[in-house]
Amino acid sequence: MLKITADELKTISQYIHDISGIYLDQSKSYLLETRLGPIAEELGCASFRALHDKAKRDSTKNIERRLIDAISTNETLFFRDNSPFELLKHKILPELIDLRSPASPRMKTHIKIWSSASSTGQELYSIAMTIRELLDGQLDRFNFKLLGTDISDSAVKQASYGKYNKFEIERGLPRQTLQKHFTLFGDSWKIKDEIRSMVNFRKLNLMLPFTGLGKFDIIFCRNVAIYFTLQDRKKLFNKLAASLADDGYLIIGSTESLTGICPLFVPKRHLRAIFYQKKN
């Protein structure tokens, strides 16, 4: 396998940081070798330096995309950590529906939700299934906008397709939910159109400005900031605060914390779950 030199390690991790915000410290040479080595070899690069130079010269950005796909950790599962989805069902959605219900019964209730590192889609589909279970039969009174974004093209592609193999399905999905919302598709499962049509996925780098997204009522930003430096996390959560409605809700990963990162948010507890709201 292609070996990385100390010098190349610096250059490549700086480059990865520039294009994705993902921070790899000097102990990650093995990760770079196993994940980027094969791409280097395939592109005929004799060294990581050559790979770096080639990627920077590539105006199509194809190499950059492949490097991001290779280095990002897409680990996710349906109903990960469960408590945010219980929170959604029993607290956040009922509260928001009250707050957002229009005066005229002929008008719809608008609610916008963003899964900001949606990976292969499990998080956003879990949100959509939660909404369906809660509001079954009355969905035509609502206008839900569910957006999933991620920096990885291949993750966005799989999410849009909504197809999962048995290993991905076995993680987190109760049998009943599986049978209700998925159909068998060869030896994989595909999310049903009624759920698929509730959501949209597209590519977005959280390190860049969020233009044209508008304000959201609920933002999920789970298990992505852990890959960023403290400084980048601060910037990210400040931007998220600006993209969140003043009475909106932010959900972060169960092992993450905003203490010392973003004073704009205050943590709140409901039963066993935590969510954040903007300080007023």
Binding site: D81, G253, S254, T255, E256, S257, L258, T259, V266, P267, R269, I274
Partner: peptide, 12 residues
């Protein structure tokens, strides 16, 4: 997660 969330509330 449980530990961190408790700390988070205490810090808040």
């Amino acid at each position: 997660g449980e530990t961190i969330q408790n700390l988070e509330i205490t810090a808040g």
